[in-house]
Design a protein around this nucleic acid. Structure first.
Lengths: 355, 355
DNA sequence: GGTGCTATGACAATCGGTTGCCATAGATAG
DNA sequence: CTATCTATGGCAACCGATTGTCATAGCACC
């Protein structure tokens, strides 16, 4: 790399740049049109700042050269990278498909690129990832975070940040109203004759797991039925699998899992243990991820508007990016959740309708 | 950042830098240690270029300031952005979960960020996305592409590029050996008594769809059984769904879909049409995505090592990035595919074992 | 015709690192 | 004791865009 082989003196081109595979720059355009580079910059970036005639000439030249502004060069003086980060705990969780799609849609729609990073490990690993990616992005979306509220607030003080499925004081959040769907779910179970519900919770650090449990508990209390929390457990298929024993032991006739993945794991384990769903045990989950209607019986779940959530998170970050300092006011219609009844929930065993 | 109490927006600050929330720079370190910024740059970047003593001093100061090199500033002179792009056609395809994970793993492991872009639309949209993202990345991984070979080769001539599940002359490719798993699949079907197989193909632009069909055709010929191609169809659930009628009409006793998503769609449609899988129709797919073992009956499929493929693709790009020009020699052990037999394939109807 | 205004484009500094080249100090050799 | 060499650090020119400031041309108006 050090030796610059100049064995080809014929090669030397008298012109300025453009020699290597390098992309055309505003200097090339300037030279071609006979104006100053700064004028090119303004023509392309500040509408109305240069005369229409000059602008047209410059645009024509830019098109001819197939010019693309160098994002790195632009980022240096402006501090704007036109890139957003999306941090997730586990990319392979189907939950993220639609979330990512929404985010990607909104980002590219606004001319931003989306970098995705996974923080599989502990909160420390997540903090590291964020720390590393911070300088090269304009804002961050934290989809599933294991960080403490303080840490999140601290990050939010340095960069525009939006958290998804979590609330932290002083930080913009995208959280669908879980009450509606969750209450509908508990009512549904009640109507099917269930009088004892188990909630299989996710990680202790999951704000949303706690929130769902709270609502279920309140709904159960209001209906005068029993509710127990089981967990915490890993928010994965195996997390659900391993919890079956404790669920059975609880004698609840219905179990609501923190998310669909866990509910599916529960159903797999139930099938292996010859526990018939929903005849002997009703199972429900949250989010309505891919696979929920594939599994047999299809999973009853509380659907979250994941695509919209991804979009909103990005929109929120972009709003904070553009309007420097003012607190982002949220006045969009609230997102809400919806109960999707499928085959995994049925009449409580021993009830009037049970066989 | 602990005691930066002076948050008052002083208009013109004649002082040096460090005024805004700006991150520490090598100039700060230089000032702190009394050396030249260039020395700081070398101490941090070129091992052995500065004396051990000076380097230690500089590293200490950098740590104290919590210094992070500004990727944008570094990218400008070097042209290295330390970012890679992964382009996929449809983020919501479960196929990508594991692929992305592998890619992300390899990328962050090498200190690179991964930007993910979706090219939902036509090849033109994909070309646009690539064109836009090109200047800000060091290399590109094309996971599912609808681009023509010429276009791909042209892009490869401008940036390090690796294509996945496709072969293009002169371009590094990551393609698992499909023969093994596919031949095993056809043999499996043969042994189950099937003498007529239908292949439901994916998009016409899919190289891999064509490749799979070729191998199935050859295997069928070798075994002396019938094989027909049906399609093309969209590589999605609904693509599979809509194809059921044609599959039935073909009178084939087994159908192999281009991918698992289509196979699942086929199974859903079959269930709705009261066609029993596998008793009346055997169904198989490719890739072994999430959901394949969830669906009932569980899907027989040819598993692809997706995580490894993602990793290799990134490793391949990085190799091309570092070793400027030499042709990347591939000498890693070949990736291969594996038949996973589950419940969706069974004995051919009318055969000796059928009911 | 002179004055003042606006529109327009040029100049140059700057963002934060990187790197070729040079100066010098100290070491080593002759 | 001088000549040569090497290790080390400084200087300054970039990379490609943005933007504050300034000069001037053209124009209107009185």
């Amino acid at each position: 790399m050090s030796d610059d082989s100049d064995a080809e003196p014929q090669r030397s081109v008298p012109t300025r740049r453009r020699s290597p595979g390098g992309a055309p720059t505003i200097y090339d355009i300037a030279e071609l049109t006979g104006v100053n580079p700064s004028t090119v910059s303004r023509a392309l970036g500040k509408p109305g700042r240069v005369s229409a005639k000059t602008e047209a000439k410059i645009r024509a030249a830019a098109a001819q050269l197939n010019f693309r502004v160098n994002p790195m060069a632009r980022a240096l003086p402006t501090g704007r990278t036109h890139t957003l980060a999306l941090i997730v705990a586990d990319i392979t969780n189907p939950l993220f498909f639609r979330l990512v799609r929404g985010a990607e849609l909104a980002a590219t729609g606004a001319g931003y690129a989306l970098v995705i990073a996974e923080s599989q490990e502990s909160g420390d690993a997540e903090a590291d990832v964020i720390e590393q990616i911070m300088p090269s992005v304009d804002g961050i979306v934290l989809a599933t975070t294991r960080l403490s509220p303080e840490r999140i607030a601290e990050i939010a003080s340095r960069k525009p940040l939006v958290v998804v499925n979590r609330e932290v004081v002083g930080v913009t959040a995208v959280v669908p109203g879980v009450e509606r769907g969750t209450q509908a779910l508990v009512s549904h179970l009640y109507e099917m004759g269930h009088r004892s519900i188990a909630y299989l919770s996710g990680p202790v650090t999951s704000w949303m797991s706690e929130r769902r449990w709270t609502i279920i508990l309140e709904a159960a209390e209001a209906l005068g039925i029993a509710a127990v929390e089981i967990g915490p457990a890993s928010p994965t298929l195996s997390g659900g699998r391993e919890a079956l024993r404790r669920v059975i032991a609880s004698r609840a006739t219905a179990v609501v899992a923190f998310n669909d993945l866990m509910a599916m794991g529960l159903m797999q384990a139930a099938a292996e243990a010859a526990v018939v769903v929903p005849d002997e045990l009703s199972v429900a989950g949250f989010d309505d991820i891919f696979g929920s209607e594939l599994i047999s019986p299809a999973l009853t779940t509380v659907r979250a508007p994941l695509v919209e959530m991804g979009q909103r998170a990005v929109v929120g970050v972009l709003a904070a990016v553009s309007s420097e300092d003012d607190a982002v006011s949220e006045d969009m219609p609230a997102l809400t959740t919806e109960l999707i009844v499928r085959g995994s929930t049925g009449h409580a065993p021993g009830g009037p309708f049970s066989s």
